[in-house]
Every structure is written in C-alpha cells, then in structure tokens.
C-alpha cells in the first residue's frame, strides 16, 4: 500500500479505479436483484450460479472484497491527511458558497454505506458462508428468492436498507463523476459523462429501494 499512497494524485487514482470497479459491481448486482421482482426463477438460477461458480467464488469475490477494503481504507487515509492539512480551522467557513454538501461530505455518506455493508454482509454473505462451509447444507437452487423476500419482512431492516440506498445515491452523485476527473478525463464529452453518472447515481439506488419495498410489501404466502 505504501507505493499506492506515495503521491496525492496516485491516492486519488486508487480511489477512482476502485470506485469504478465498485460502480460496475453495483450495476451487475442491481441487474441480478431486479430479477427477484420480475422473474424469481431467473433470480434463483443466477444466484445459485454466483454462489457456486468457482470463478465467482474464489477469484471475483476476493477481488470484490479487496476493492471494497481498498476504497474505504484509502478514503480514511485521504480524510485524515486532508484534516491535517488545515490544523487551525476557520472561525467562519462558508463551504456551501462554492461546493455542494454532497461533495464536501463524502466521508459521511461513505461511512453510512460502509455501516450498511456490515449489515448486508451479515444478512447475506455470512449466511451463505455458514450455509455452505459451516453447516455443509446441500445445494438448493430454489432457495434464494424466498430467503431474500423473507429478509425484507421486518420494517426496521427495510428502513435501514432504504436510508442506506439514499446515502449511496448521494455518494455516487459526486463520486462517480469525480472519478473521471481524477483519472484526467475533462473534455468535450464531460457534460455527457456527468449526465450519465448523475442518472446512474439516482436510478440504480432508487431501483434498490424499489426492490426492498416491493419485497417488504409483497411477502410470500406459505
């Protein structure tokens, strides 16, 4: 990691590249999740594939976990360094006059998303690991849809998920476009790129909100 943190621009590039990777993952995650609403059988099929395919399990999953860790650790490093760069704070600082709240508070939206990830990992990833590697239960390609819908039965969990997705939207609103700037992309295509990132930042998290609410209000009847 020391090589990655040696210059301020290198640190930003690490944030941008890991961010791009996580954005790509998010789009893939959303695509699979959306099938839980429109095609439960497809959701079961794809979830089973993701859960048992060796390439996904032993190569892509560790890369994803590394991507998440690199992104938030580097986020903390940047925040601490940036804090130190102004030892004595202003008595009056009108940040809202020249920059959006979202861009100035990425650490807040990021921390909420990180806390959400802890819950999300507990809800699904830890459950999967226990199912496969601790309890050694047999493969069941039909269980995923029912398990997912049941997770959204409690109101508290649905509310936490919805609030977290809103903060994720705020994080993406600044972060996705910002990653292009960090990578040196600022040209005649920038207005179009920004428009795409803003649409992505709203549509994908709202889609996740829709899925959570849909399953909460449409419980399975046994």
């Amino acid at each position: 990691m020391s090589g990655l943190t040696k210059s301020s621009i290198a640190r930003k590039v690490v944030m941008a590249l890991s961010g791009f990777f996580l954005v790509f993952f998010l789009a893939q995650h959303f695509t699979i999740n959306f099938t839980s609403v429109i095609a439960p059988d497809t959701f079961n099929e794809w979830s089973h594939f993701m859960g048992y395919n060796p390439l996904v399990q032993y190569i892509l999953q560790p890369i994803l976990i590394a991507g998440v860790i690199i992104h938030f650790v580097m986020g903390f490093v940047l925040e601490l360094q940036n804090n130190r760069a102004r030892g004595v704070k202003y008595v009056k600082f009108k940040g809202s006059a020249n920059a959006s709240w979202v861009s100035r508070n990425m650490i807040i939206s990021g921390l909420v998303v990180l806390a959400f990830l802890a819950l999300h990992f507990y809800d699904f990833w830890v459950h999967e690991m226990a199912y496969k590697y601790i309890e050694f239960k047999p493969q069941d390609p039909t269980r995923y849809h029912a398990e997912t819908v049941e997770k959204f039965a409690p109101m508290w969990r649905t509310v936490i998920y919805v609030v977290s997705f809103v903060l994720l939207a705020l994080h993406l609103w600044h972060g996705f476009a910002s990653a292009f700037q960090s990578m040196g992309v600022n040209n005649k295509y920038t207005p179009s790129i920004k428009a795409f990132t803003k649409v992505f930042a709203v549509v994908i998290p709202l889609g996740f909100v829709f899925i959570a609410l849909y399953h909460h209000f449409n419980p399975l009847t046994h």
Binding site: L78, Q81, N82, R84, G95, A97, N98, A99, S103, S178
Partner: peptide
C-alpha cells in the same frame, strides 16, 4: 503539506 483534491470544485468557484 497541502491536502488531497476531492474534486469539490470550490477552488474554481473562488
């Protein structure tokens, strides 16, 4: 000892 850029754009405005 300057900080890292987080692309808030405040510099350009001011």
């Amino acid at each position: 000892g300057f900080g890292n850029c987080t692309n808030t754009g405040a510099c350009e405005v001011e």
